[in-house]
Computed example of a mutant assay.
Amino acid sequence: MSFDTRSGTRGARQPARNRFERWANLRMAERIRRKGDRRGTKLALVTIGHRTGLERVTPVRWFPAGGGARYIVASANGAARNPAWYYNLAANPDRVRIEFAGKHLDVVAEQLHGAERAAAWAQITATARGFAKYERLTDREIPVIVLRSRPPGRHAVSPNGG
């Protein structure tokens, strides 16, 4: 499915817009990468910048999606615009990694739509009611992304046919 959620016309203040918030997010992501978090509900999302091509790391909350998959939500605290990492996923959905507590996992990102999104959103808002508040603050549909383990790539065929 495509990453196609447009920005809205109203919403809360976009998070991490100043130097201190960016610094704090980076410190949180580094801690999650090394030690995880107390409840085990956050991960460090590693994406490739859609404009720069550079690796970007963002701490995000995740929710179980079954079969080892995870849901993440591009809420931006109810801002009118999607978070920057959403556009990074849209540009490179197959070049994503999640890290937590010293573990690294290559994943593929897919935005959910329709009934799939509705079911996931119901599960997410039942677990974390704050996300329902974000939905009331903005007029955009908040994207729900599923992260699934990337299947191991096939080995390239060597020049000698082996």
Score class of each variant (00 low, 15 high):
residue 12 A to Q: 13
residue 151 P to I: 02
residue 38 R to I: 04
residue 43 L to T: 13
residue 26 L to A: 10
residue 148 R to T: 15
residue 16 A to T: 07
residue 154 R to P: 14
residue 82 N to A: 03
residue 132 A to Y: 12
residue 122 A to N: 13
residue 69 A to H: 10
residue 58 T to E: 06
residue 108 V to C: 09
residue 150 R to V: 11
residue 17 R to V: 12
residue 159 P to R: 00
residue 27 R to H: 02
residue 15 P to H: 02
residue 98 I to R: 01
residue 12 A to L: 05
residue 21 E to D: 09
residue 25 N to G: 15
residue 128 A to S: 15
residue 4 D to W: 05
residue 58 T to F: 06
residue 46 V to M: 05
residue 47 T to R: 03
residue 133 K to G: 15
residue 162 G to K: 06
residue 89 L to G: 14
residue 101 A to W: 03
residue 50 H to I: 00
residue 56 R to C: 06
residue 149 S to Y: 03
residue 119 A to E: 14
residue 22 R to G: 11
residue 58 T to Y: 08
residue 89 L to E: 02
residue 151 P to S: 05
residue 48 I to H: 00
residue 43 L to V: 12
residue 27 R to I: 08
residue 135 E to L: 06
residue 108 V to Q: 09
residue 19 R to A: 11
residue 70 R to F: 12
residue 80 A to V: 05
residue 55 E to H: 09
residue 111 Q to D: 14
residue 63 F to Y: 15
residue 155 H to L: 05
residue 63 F to I: 09
residue 89 L to H: 13
residue 131 F to T: 14
residue 121 W to D: 11
residue 95 R to L: 11
residue 156 A to L: 15
residue 9 T to R: 02
residue 147 L to S: 12
residue 78 G to H: 08
residue 131 F to Y: 15
residue 112 L to D: 06
residue 51 R to S: 01
residue 158 S to I: 00
residue 119 A to I: 10
residue 109 A to Q: 01
residue 21 E to G: 14
residue 104 H to E: 09
residue 77 N to K: 05
residue 146 V to L: 02
residue 153 G to I: 06
residue 24 A to P: 15
residue 155 H to V: 15
residue 64 P to V: 00
residue 70 R to M: 08
residue 13 R to N: 08
residue 86 Y to K: 07
residue 124 I to M: 04
residue 153 G to N: 03
residue 3 F to T: 13
residue 53 G to K: 01
residue 85 W to E: 07
residue 133 K to C: 07
residue 32 I to H: 07
residue 90 A to L: 01
residue 94 D to I: 01
residue 89 L to M: 12
residue 106 D to S: 14
residue 88 N to A: 05
residue 66 G to A: 06
residue 106 D to Y: 02
residue 84 A to S: 15
residue 109 A to G: 14
residue 143 P to N: 01
residue 148 R to P: 13
residue 71 Y to S: 07
residue 142 I to M: 01
residue 130 G to P: 13
residue 64 P to F: 00
residue 71 Y to R: 00
residue 87 Y to N: 12
residue 79 A to H: 11
residue 93 P to V: 05
residue 125 T to W: 05
residue 141 E to A: 04
residue 33 R to M: 10
residue 108 V to Y: 07
